[in-house]
Amino acid sequence: MNMASIGILFLFFIVIRAQTEGKLFVEVECKTGNVGQYGQQSMLDCVVTISEEVKEPKILAVAWKKKGSEDALLVFHKGNTTGQPGYRFAESSWNDRNMNVSLLITNTMMVDRGDYTCSVFTDSGDDITETSLRVTAKYNKPTISSIPVNITGREDVILICSSVGGYPEGKLRWFDEHNTEWPASSKMEAELTNDGLFKLSSKLSLLKNSIFSKYTCVVFNSSGGKEGEVTLEIPDTAASEGHGGVEGSDQISKIVAPAVVIGSLIVGLLLALLIHRRRSQRHHREVPTCEFNAEQGGLVETYKERGDGTV
């Protein structure tokens, strides 16, 4: 519908309004806030209420218009309905006796968010009401890449997580295999694309000595709800050489420590046996004997070693 047709239509509305001024028999009631999902159908709920004094009301004209746009989205006039592609009355069998004038958007896009006006003229009065549409979009499942591509654990690593197609702006968060978040080591950026949706990207920096075996990137919407996640598993060799190397050291310590204890016990036993043997040999070499000493006037105990070194 061109501008001339819209001008004639609203001139007709003004005439009708002048004829029915002062009558409060008609009211358009719209849901103040409507929420639509990107890529799906959205509906702006509006109904016409008529006072009890009015019998069998008839709608003469309806016009749906988005604020900021010169062209009407949907118009009913003189029994004919015209509109832009993707916009129609919510009830497919709508007619001039149907008081449900809700607008259906068949494929919701980001350009559809904003404020709308619904103008209704009947044979018993008219009314204009405003309503609004808020559009949300769910983020796609995130993806993870790494620099370098092959993680060996011998160098620092950067993990990159990306998710697109969401609105409003969400968040990407990193978690390790113990479900511990890594906010200090990550940095997120949000970019608004040409289709009005956000692209989120986050980089997680890892040092070669602090690499776990698994990292999970989770995308959350603006309300804090989880919308998707992806997990990257680090090869065992890389994890063992990185953070896993610490775990490897622990395993080595667990092996070495008992070995040291056992070795100490063995050395102690050998030393005890050696000392015992030396004491035994000395005891056998020295044999006590008793001899008479005339000068001292008694027996004197002396030690003589046998020639063969045995008792």
Rank of each mutant, 00 (worst) to 15 (best):
S51L: 13
E52K: 14
E53D: 15
E53G: 15
V54D: 09
K55V: 14
K55L: 13
E56A: 13
P57H: 02
P57V: 06
K58T: 13
I59Y: 05
L60Y: 11
A61Q: 13
A61P: 10
A61K: 13
K65F: 00
E70S: 12
E70M: 11
E70V: 08
A72M: 03
L73R: 01
L73K: 03
L73I: 01
L74P: 00
L74H: 00
V75G: 00
F76D: 00
F76S: 02
F76Q: 01
F76A: 01
G79A: 10
G79N: 06
N80Y: 05
N80C: 03
N80T: 08
G83L: 08
G83V: 09
P85F: 02
G86C: 06
G86E: 09
A90V: 09
E91V: 15
S92E: 13
W94L: 10
W94N: 04
W94C: 08
D96T: 05
N98W: 00
M99T: 12
L103Q: 02
L103F: 04
T106M: 05
T108A: 04
T108L: 07
T108E: 07
V111W: 09
V111T: 13
D112A: 08
Y116P: 10
T117P: 01
T117K: 13
C118H: 03
T122A: 14
G125L: 03
D127L: 06
I128C: 14
I128W: 06
T129A: 15
E130L: 03
E130M: 07
T131F: 09
T131K: 08
L133C: 06
R134V: 03
V135F: 04
T136K: 11
T136V: 14
Y139L: 12
Y139W: 09
K141V: 15
T143P: 00
S145L: 07
